[in-house]
């Protein structure tokens, strides 16, 4: 129910969860991403274009990932959330906390 694609674009890690990020799948997301963030790879774009749904458990895994980038002196920003996911980011304050860009291109330019 969740697939996570990870690409390195000019030194920036683009992480794209595809499907649903919830209480059942958030551990899969963490497993897929935990070894990717390092001292050298500390800038992350979380591309949410293909994320259908996120719950507070899903947000917990996003927060864990964001904290890891901070620990390596980097940053995690979000790009392309669909309406339903964007509403959850807004209500939770996560959108404001992390920064949301409409597209991956805009997010890439922000680094």
């Amino acid at each position: 129910m969740l697939e996570t694609k990870i690409e390195n674009k000019e030194g920036i890690l683009v992480i794209a969860p595809i499907g649903r990020l919830d209480g059942l799948t958030s551990k899969d997301f963490l497993e897929a991403t935990e070894n990717e963030i390092t001292n050298e790879a500390n800038k992350v774009i979380l591309n949410l274009e293909n994320l259908d749904y996120i719950s507070s458990e899903g947000l917990r895994s996003v927060l864990t990932t964001a904290k890891k980038t901070k620990a390596f002196d980097g940053q995690l920003v979000i790009s392309g959330p669909r309406d339903g996911v964007k509403e959850v980011l807004d209500i939770s304050g996560f959108g404001q906390m992390l920064g949301v860009f409409a597209t991956e291109e805009e997010a890439l330019k922000s680094f």
């Binding site: 719950s55 458990e57 917990r60 927060l63 904290k67 901070k70």
Partner: peptide
């Protein structure tokens, strides 16, 4: 901030 943020109560 990201460093201090917790998840409790969001639901």
């Amino acid at each position: 901030s990201i460093e201090d943020r917790q998840i409790g109560g969001l639901g």
